[in-house]
Simulated assay, not measured.
Amino acid sequence: MEKLDEAYCILRRFGLCESKAGFSREWLGASASYLTSMEARARQPHMTALVGLTARLELLADRLAVDPRYQEHVRLLNELIDDLWDAVRARALAAAPKRRADHDAYGV
Results as ranks from 00 to 15, higher is better:
A65H: 09
Y34K: 01
E39F: 06
V74W: 01
L76S: 11
M38E: 06
D86V: 07
E79R: 13
K20P: 02
V51F: 08
D102E: 13
K98P: 10
S24W: 02
K98E: 15
D104Q: 11
G15T: 05
V51H: 05
S24Y: 01
M47D: 15
A87W: 06
A49S: 12
L76P: 01
T36F: 05
E18D: 15
A92M: 08
L59P: 00
F14D: 00
M47Q: 14
A101T: 12
A42M: 10
L77R: 02
L84T: 00
A55H: 08
G22S: 14
F14K: 02
M38P: 00
D83W: 01
L84F: 02
E79V: 14
D5Y: 06
L64S: 04
D62R: 14
T36N: 13
V74H: 03
Y8W: 08
L93V: 08
L80G: 00
L57Y: 05
L11N: 02
L80V: 02
A40P: 00
L35F: 07
R100D: 12
D104E: 14
L80P: 03
K98F: 11
S37C: 12
E79S: 11
R13Q: 13
M1D: 05
S37L: 10
S33D: 07
S19L: 08
R25S: 06
G22V: 10
M38S: 03
G15Y: 06
F23Q: 02
L11Y: 04
D82I: 04
A101R: 13
C9D: 15
I10F: 09
A55I: 07
D102N: 09
D86H: 10
G22L: 11
R25K: 14
A30W: 02
A65C: 08
L93Y: 09
S37D: 14
K20D: 06
R99F: 11
A30L: 06
A42P: 01
A65R: 06
G22E: 15
Q71Y: 08
L16E: 09
Y8M: 05
C9R: 15
L4W: 03
P97I: 00
E2C: 04
R41H: 07
R12T: 07
V108M: 12
H73P: 01
V88R: 05
W27Y: 02
A55S: 11
V74K: 01
A105S: 12
R100L: 15
T54R: 09
T48W: 06
R100P: 03
M1H: 09
L80Y: 05
H46R: 13
D82W: 04
Q71N: 08
E2S: 13
A105L: 15
K20M: 10
A21D: 11
H46V: 06
S24A: 10
P45N: 03
I10C: 04
R100Y: 14
A30P: 00
R75E: 14
L77F: 05
P45T: 00
D67V: 09
W85C: 02
T36H: 07
R99A: 11
S31T: 10
R63W: 07
D5F: 07
Q44Y: 12
Y70V: 04
E58V: 09
A61Y: 04
A30E: 12
V66Q: 12
M1V: 07
A21G: 13
D104L: 15
A7Y: 00
